[in-house]
Structures are given as structure tokens and as C-alpha cells.
Design a protein around this nucleic acid. Structure first.
Ligand SMILES: [Mn+2]
Ligand SMILES: [Mn+2]
Ligand SMILES: [Zn+2]
Ligand SMILES: [Zn+2]
Lengths: 137, 137
DNA sequence: TGTTTAATGCAACGTTGTTTCATTTGGCAA
DNA sequence: TTGCCAAATGAAACAACGTTGCATTAAACA
């Protein structure tokens, strides 16, 4: 059972608008994390300010999460399942291909538990794998 | 024995210029990773384009490394010891404070060895710890 | 000291992201 | 179904960040 764009909007109490539905469709069609620019390129025509706000809202509401990859531009990916405004649970690694620049979620790899240095209080961690993806090998 | 700015430039076969020496002094005086803006703020007057080029050169030559922290702006930190143009060895974690935004190298924490997902070829990894630093606790 | 080559300073330009405000539209209740 | 209200959108203006090309200056070395 795959959730549709409208399902996702309903689940997060977000108004159903054309831009939002189309952005979600783009994420649903993609297996890689997407930057603002990637998404803009999928539209015939879209206001980029609206797109910034859409992504910000989605991120705040737990629809998408930032895919940290050490690259120059910020990318987002769909949250898998049960994230909400108050509980983002994205404890998985991301892989960034040095060749093609694509970034993917590695849902199966959880962030290993690490010990905080003395005096520091940990709230989370990012793990980014770099290398060559299956397509670029 | 602490290397001076001029020592570092000599070690990497870089010309000794005022801007470069001063940028290195700023890094040597700082225990945290610095963004372009942080560095610019330490100068009375500096051309920001020169600063961009200085940081780029330092990064390429193994003088500084990018401190990935998941934050909005790129930061750099001095490489410890034996990095060169052809061998950047920065296999340590970084800590990013959610409160003050400061990022520090955790030299003592090496990146754990992880298994590459099927079809992927690993060349490295980043580990970023988030939380509250000793000062902000 | 003079020559060569790299570094700098400056201008111009492009990209990215934010803020403000008027207009449009989705959700909801009468 | 209609109309109202709050939220989303579109447009303009602006700020921050970053790059490129070119003329000038300065470091290195003979
Ligand atoms: Mn992810
Ligand atoms: Mn570091
Ligand atoms: Zn690839
Ligand atoms: Zn702090």
C-alpha cells in the first residue's frame, strides 16, 4: 500500500493545494533526495518562493527530512511513515555519490550509538557515506 | 611544538602573503571551526573574494578541511598534521551545538567502519554529532 | 636587481534565500 | 450551495553568498 500525495497531506493536516500535491508526487516518483532546484526543474512553471515555503512547511510538519550529505546544496527526502510535527525520526544514514552527486536514504543503516565527549550532551547524529553509487560504478 | 602560520605555508609550498598568514593565525587562535563570515569578521579589512580563494586553496592543499555539521553554512578547521594536496586524512567526527551553533573537531572519535550497501563503493564517511556543547549546558 | 608567475583587488554577474504585501483559494459553517 | 475566513500563493524588493574576468601588485628565485 503506497500513500498518495493527497493521503500524505491529509495525514499531516495540510491543505490540499496544487503545488503541494505536485511536490509530493515528485518526491514519490523519485528514489533520491531532491534539492530545491531539482524540484523546480520538474515543474512547468512554479513560483520559487512558494516552493521554498512548501519545503519549509513539509519539513516542519514531518513530511520530508533534510538529507545531510556534505554537498553544497541542501536536499530533502520523504519521511518514511510515522514522522509528525513533534517527532521526526530519521535515524538512518545517507549515501552521497561523488560521481553523479545523487544522495539516497539508506533506511536499513541506523546511526550507530556513539559516546558523547566529556561535557557534551548528545541529541542526535548524522552519518553520511561517500563513494560511488551502483549506477556510477 | 606548535607550528606557526609561516611554518604551515612553507610546509605546503604556499607563498607567504599577508592574507594567508592572517587567516592561518585566526585558525590557530580558534578552537572551533570557522565559516567564511567568521573569518571575515576577524579582519579589519579584507577583500572577500581573496578570502574565498584563500580558503579554496587551503582546502585543496590540505591545510584546512571542511567541517560538515549539517548547518546552513560551510565551516573549515585546520588539518591536524600530515594532510597534503594528495592525502586529506580527516577521519574524525565533528560536534555541532544546537544552542550556539559552534562546531568543533572531535579528533579523538574516529569514524566507525561501516559496511557499504550492496552495489555501492565507499570512499569515506562523515559523522556529525548534534547536541549541546560544554559551554551551553 | 630584474623577471616571472602567483596572489590580490575590483567590477560585474548569477544564485540562493528572506520579507512584505496584495491576491487567490481551500476548508468550513451557515 | 454559498459566503466567510484563514491560509497559501504570486510578485517585488532586497540581502547574502559565491563565481568569473581582468588589471595591478607582490612573492619567489635566478
Ligand atoms: Mn533520509
Ligand atoms: Mn575536523
Ligand atoms: Zn552516482
Ligand atoms: Zn554551544
Amino acid at each position: 500500500m503506497t500513500a498518495s500525495a493527497l493521503d500524505i497531506l491529509a495525514q499531516h493536516n495540510l491543505r490540499k493545494t496544487a503545488v503541494r500535491a505536485q511536490v509530493l508526487d515528485i518526491f514519490l516518483d523519485s528514489r533520491e533526495a531532491l534539492s530545491h532546484n531539482d524540484i523546480e526543474a520538474h515543474f512547468n512553471q512554479v513560483d520559487r518562493i512558494t516552493l521554498y515555503r512548501t519545503l519549509k512547511t513539509f519539513e516542519e510538519k514531518g513530511v520530508i527530512h533534510k538529507a545531510i550529505d556534505g554537498g553544497e546544496k541542501l536536499k530533502y527526502a520523504l519521511c518514511s511513515g510515522h514522522c509528525s510535527e513533534h517527532a521526526h525520526e530519521d535515524h538512518h544514514a545517507h549515501f552521497h555519490c561523488d560521481q553523479c552527486g545523487k544522495t539516497v536514504c539508506i533506511e536499513s543503516m541506523h546511526i550507530p550509538a556513539v559516546q558523547a565527549p566529556a561535557g557534551y550532551q548528545l541529541s542526535g547524529a548524522y552519518l553520511v557515506l561517500k563513494g560511488t553509487c551502483a549506477t556510477c560504478t
